[in-house]
Protein backbone atom coordinates (compact mmCIF):
# COMPACT_ATOMS: atom_id res chain seq x y z
CA UNK A 1 0.00 0.00 0.00
CA UNK A 2 2.74 2.44 1.05
CA UNK A 3 6.24 2.07 -0.32
CA UNK A 4 8.94 4.40 0.96
CA UNK A 5 12.21 3.96 -0.85
CA UNK A 6 15.64 5.29 -0.01
CA UNK A 7 14.29 8.48 1.59
CA UNK A 8 16.75 11.30 2.36
CA UNK A 9 15.47 14.37 4.22
CA UNK A 10 17.48 17.35 5.39
CA UNK A 11 16.96 20.16 7.87
CA UNK A 12 19.26 22.73 6.32
CA UNK A 13 22.63 20.99 6.36
CA UNK A 14 21.59 18.27 8.80
CA UNK A 15 20.72 15.00 7.13
CA UNK A 16 17.97 13.63 9.35
CA UNK A 17 17.05 10.69 7.11
CA UNK A 18 19.89 8.84 5.40
CA UNK A 19 18.08 6.51 3.04
CA UNK A 20 15.03 4.96 4.69
CA UNK A 21 13.05 2.15 3.10
CA UNK A 22 9.74 1.19 4.68
CA UNK A 23 6.75 -0.78 3.41
CA UNK A 24 3.26 -0.96 4.77
CA UNK A 25 0.74 -3.48 3.44
CA UNK A 26 -3.02 -3.08 3.53
CA UNK A 27 -4.49 -4.02 6.91
CA UNK A 28 -1.18 -4.09 8.79
CA UNK A 29 0.02 -2.34 11.90
CA UNK A 30 3.63 -1.38 11.23
CA UNK A 31 5.68 0.33 13.90
CA UNK A 32 8.76 2.53 13.75
CA UNK A 33 10.75 2.54 16.96
CA UNK A 34 14.00 4.21 17.90
CA UNK A 35 15.69 6.54 20.33
CA UNK A 36 15.05 10.29 20.56
CA UNK A 37 16.22 12.04 17.45
CA UNK A 38 16.43 8.85 15.39
CA UNK A 39 14.24 10.34 12.67
CA UNK A 40 10.83 8.78 13.35
CA UNK A 41 8.85 12.01 13.21
CA UNK A 42 10.89 13.18 10.24
CA UNK A 43 9.89 10.02 8.39
CA UNK A 44 6.19 10.59 9.05
CA UNK A 45 6.41 14.29 8.20
CA UNK A 46 8.12 13.50 4.92
CA UNK A 47 5.41 11.00 4.03
CA UNK A 48 2.64 13.45 4.93
CA UNK A 49 4.16 16.26 2.87
CA UNK A 50 5.17 18.54 5.74
CA UNK A 51 8.78 18.03 4.67
CA UNK A 52 10.16 17.53 1.20
CA UNK A 53 12.75 14.78 0.68
CA UNK A 54 15.99 15.49 -1.15
CA UNK A 55 16.10 12.00 -2.58
CA UNK A 56 13.99 8.89 -2.64
CA UNK A 57 10.39 8.16 -3.42
CA UNK A 58 7.07 7.63 -1.70
CA UNK A 59 4.43 5.58 -3.48
CA UNK A 60 0.91 5.17 -2.16
CA UNK A 61 -1.51 2.73 -3.79
CA UNK A 62 0.74 2.70 -6.85
CA UNK A 63 0.75 6.50 -7.16
CA UNK A 64 3.85 8.64 -6.70
CA UNK A 65 3.15 11.08 -3.86
CA UNK A 66 6.72 12.28 -3.28
CA UNK A 67 6.98 15.98 -2.51
CA UNK A 68 3.26 16.75 -2.68
CA UNK A 69 1.91 19.43 -0.36
CA UNK A 70 0.44 18.27 2.94
CA UNK A 71 -3.16 19.07 2.06
CA UNK A 72 -2.86 17.11 -1.17
CA UNK A 73 -1.40 14.08 0.61
CA UNK A 74 -4.29 14.26 3.09
CA UNK A 75 -6.65 14.14 0.13
CA UNK A 76 -5.07 10.83 -0.91
CA UNK A 77 -6.11 9.27 2.40
CA UNK A 78 -2.79 9.40 4.27
CA UNK A 79 -3.60 10.94 7.63
CA UNK A 80 -0.98 11.91 10.17
CA UNK A 81 -1.82 12.41 13.84
CA UNK A 82 1.14 14.59 14.75
CA UNK A 83 3.46 14.30 17.72
CA UNK A 84 2.37 16.69 20.44
CA UNK A 85 -1.27 16.37 19.34
CA UNK A 86 -1.65 19.81 17.73
CA UNK A 87 -5.27 20.28 18.76
CA UNK A 88 -6.88 23.56 17.67
CA UNK A 89 -6.87 25.19 21.11
CA UNK A 90 -9.67 27.70 20.64
CA UNK A 91 -12.06 25.38 18.86
CA UNK A 92 -14.44 23.12 20.69
CA UNK A 93 -13.93 19.37 20.78
CA UNK A 94 -16.67 18.97 18.20
CA UNK A 95 -15.25 21.65 15.90
CA UNK A 96 -11.87 19.90 16.11
CA UNK A 97 -13.54 16.69 14.98
CA UNK A 98 -15.29 18.55 12.16
CA UNK A 99 -11.93 19.91 11.02
CA UNK A 100 -10.75 16.30 10.74
CA UNK A 101 -13.46 15.79 8.12
CA UNK A 102 -12.52 18.97 6.26
CA UNK A 103 -12.08 17.35 2.85
CA UNK A 104 -15.09 15.06 3.07
CA UNK A 105 -18.16 15.84 1.03
CA UNK A 106 -20.42 12.97 2.10
CA UNK A 107 -23.25 13.35 4.59
CA UNK A 108 -22.06 10.83 7.17
CA UNK A 109 -19.86 13.20 9.14
CA UNK A 110 -22.34 13.36 12.02
CA UNK A 111 -22.40 9.56 12.18
CA UNK A 112 -18.63 9.45 12.38
CA UNK A 113 -18.57 12.02 15.17
CA UNK A 114 -20.93 9.72 17.06
CA UNK A 115 -18.58 6.82 16.30
CA UNK A 116 -15.61 8.76 17.76
CA UNK A 117 -17.69 9.56 20.84
CA UNK A 118 -18.35 5.83 21.16
CA UNK A 119 -14.65 5.11 21.06
CA UNK A 120 -13.86 7.90 23.52
CA UNK A 121 -16.89 8.64 25.73
CA UNK A 122 -14.75 11.20 27.57
CA UNK A 123 -14.82 13.41 24.50
CA UNK A 124 -18.60 13.33 24.33
CA UNK A 125 -18.86 14.75 27.84
CA UNK A 126 -16.57 17.57 26.77
CA UNK A 127 -17.88 18.16 23.28
CA UNK A 128 -18.39 21.91 23.73
CA UNK A 129 -15.20 22.48 25.73
CA UNK A 130 -12.30 24.28 24.03
CA UNK A 131 -9.58 21.93 22.81
CA UNK A 132 -6.87 23.88 24.64
CA UNK A 133 -8.49 23.24 28.01
CA UNK A 134 -8.48 19.43 27.72
CA UNK A 135 -6.02 17.31 29.68
CA UNK A 136 -3.11 15.76 27.80
CA UNK A 137 -4.81 12.38 27.60
CA UNK A 138 -8.07 13.87 26.41
CA UNK A 139 -6.18 15.83 23.78
CA UNK A 140 -4.57 12.63 22.55
CA UNK A 141 -7.99 11.01 22.26
CA UNK A 142 -9.20 14.07 20.38
CA UNK A 143 -6.18 14.06 18.05
CA UNK A 144 -6.74 10.37 17.30
CA UNK A 145 -10.47 10.87 16.82
CA UNK A 146 -9.84 13.87 14.59
CA UNK A 147 -7.52 11.72 12.48
CA UNK A 148 -10.23 9.05 12.15
CA UNK A 149 -12.75 11.67 11.02
CA UNK A 150 -10.89 11.90 7.71
CA UNK A 151 -11.70 8.21 7.06
CA UNK A 152 -8.03 7.47 6.45
CA UNK A 153 -6.78 4.72 4.23
CA UNK A 154 -3.51 4.88 6.14
CA UNK A 155 -3.41 6.31 9.65
CA UNK A 156 0.00 7.45 10.90
CA UNK A 157 0.23 7.99 14.64
CA UNK A 158 3.26 9.80 16.09
CA UNK A 159 3.82 8.82 19.72
CA UNK A 160 0.21 8.52 20.78
CA UNK A 161 1.24 7.42 24.28
CA UNK A 162 3.65 10.26 25.02
CA UNK A 163 3.20 11.75 28.47
CA UNK A 164 0.08 9.78 29.29
CA UNK A 165 -0.82 7.77 32.38
CA UNK A 166 -0.71 3.96 31.89
CA UNK A 167 -4.53 3.66 31.99
CA UNK A 168 -4.90 6.17 29.19
CA UNK A 169 -2.11 4.51 27.21
CA UNK A 170 -4.11 1.29 27.45
CA UNK A 171 -7.20 3.07 26.16
CA UNK A 172 -5.26 4.46 23.21
CA UNK A 173 -3.63 1.13 22.36
CA UNK A 174 -6.91 -0.78 22.68
CA UNK A 175 -8.39 1.69 20.25
CA UNK A 176 -5.52 1.23 17.81
CA UNK A 177 -5.99 -2.53 17.84
CA UNK A 178 -9.76 -2.19 17.53
CA UNK A 179 -9.74 0.14 14.53
CA UNK A 180 -7.10 -2.05 12.91
CA UNK A 181 -9.37 -5.11 13.33
CA UNK A 182 -12.05 -3.10 11.54
CA UNK A 183 -9.69 -2.76 8.58
CA UNK A 184 -7.59 0.36 9.16
CA UNK A 185 -3.95 0.26 8.09
CA UNK A 186 -1.71 1.85 10.69
CA UNK A 187 1.85 3.18 10.78
CA UNK A 188 2.72 3.69 14.42
CA UNK A 189 5.69 5.63 15.80
CA UNK A 190 6.43 4.90 19.44
CA UNK A 191 8.93 5.44 22.21
CA UNK A 192 7.11 2.76 24.12
CA UNK A 193 8.71 -0.01 22.10
CA UNK A 194 7.35 -2.89 24.17
CA UNK A 195 3.73 -1.94 23.68
CA UNK A 196 4.19 -1.00 20.04
CA UNK A 197 5.89 -4.29 19.15
CA UNK A 198 3.20 -6.28 20.94
CA UNK A 199 0.44 -4.91 18.75
CA UNK A 200 2.44 -4.57 15.52
CA UNK A 201 2.56 -7.06 12.66
CA UNK A 202 5.97 -5.77 11.67
CA UNK A 203 8.44 -3.21 12.92
CA UNK A 204 11.44 -1.14 11.90
CA UNK A 205 14.16 0.06 14.24
CA UNK A 206 15.57 3.47 13.37
CA UNK A 207 19.02 4.60 14.43
CA UNK A 208 20.25 8.10 13.55
CA UNK A 209 18.41 8.30 10.29
CA UNK A 210 18.85 4.74 9.05
CA UNK A 211 16.99 1.48 9.46
CA UNK A 212 19.06 -0.69 11.79
CA UNK A 213 16.73 -3.67 12.03
CA UNK A 214 13.43 -4.87 10.70
CA UNK A 215 11.21 -7.84 11.28
CA UNK A 216 7.94 -9.17 12.66
CA UNK A 217 6.62 -7.53 15.82
CA UNK A 218 7.09 -10.57 18.04
CA UNK A 219 10.44 -11.31 16.43
CA UNK A 220 11.79 -7.86 17.27
CA UNK A 221 10.27 -8.08 20.73
CA UNK A 222 12.48 -11.10 21.39
CA UNK A 223 15.54 -9.75 19.63
CA UNK A 224 18.36 -9.42 22.09
CA UNK A 225 19.67 -6.15 20.75
CA UNK A 226 16.22 -4.59 20.80
CA UNK A 227 15.63 -5.83 24.33
CA UNK A 228 18.86 -4.25 25.50
CA UNK A 229 18.58 -0.95 23.73
CA UNK A 230 14.86 -0.21 23.66
CA UNK A 231 13.22 -2.34 26.29
CA UNK A 232 15.66 -1.37 29.03
CA UNK A 233 16.93 -4.87 29.83
CA UNK A 234 20.46 -5.48 31.02
Amino acid sequence: MLKVENLHTFYGQIEALKGITVNVEQGEIVTLIGANGAGKSTTLKTISGQLTPQKGSITFEGEDVTGLEAHVVTGKGIIQVPEGRHIFPRMSVEENLEMGAFLRKDDEIKDDIAMVYDLFPRLKERRLQKGGTLSGGEQQMLATGRGLMARPKLLMLDEPSMGLAPVIVDVIFDTIVRINKEGMTILLVEQNAAMALQVADRGYVLETGSIALEGGGKELLHNEQVRKTYLGEV
Binding site: S48, G49, Q50, E69, A70, H71, T74, G75, I79, Q80, P82, H86, I87, F88, P89, R90, M91, E95, E98, M99, G100, F102, L103, R146, A150
Partner: peptide, 24 residues
Protein backbone atom coordinates in the same frame (compact mmCIF):
# COMPACT_ATOMS: atom_id res chain seq x y z
CA UNK B 1 -18.77 28.69 7.16
CA UNK B 2 -16.37 25.89 6.35
CA UNK B 3 -13.82 28.26 4.83
CA UNK B 4 -14.12 30.53 7.87
CA UNK B 5 -13.39 27.55 10.10
CA UNK B 6 -10.39 26.71 7.95
CA UNK B 7 -9.14 30.26 8.50
CA UNK B 8 -9.54 29.94 12.26
CA UNK B 9 -7.84 26.56 12.24
CA UNK B 10 -4.95 27.96 10.22
CA UNK B 11 -4.49 30.83 12.65
CA UNK B 12 -4.51 28.46 15.63
CA UNK B 13 -2.16 25.82 14.25
CA UNK B 14 -1.00 26.17 10.69
CA UNK B 15 0.72 22.78 10.41
CA UNK B 16 -2.24 20.93 11.84
CA UNK B 17 -4.61 22.75 9.49
CA UNK B 18 -2.48 21.53 6.56
CA UNK B 19 -2.78 17.98 7.86
CA UNK B 20 -6.57 18.35 7.90
CA UNK B 21 -6.41 19.10 4.16
CA UNK B 22 -6.60 22.89 4.36
CA UNK B 23 -4.68 24.55 1.53
CA UNK B 24 -2.68 27.02 3.59
Amino acid sequence: TKIGKAMRATSQDRDAAGLMGVNI
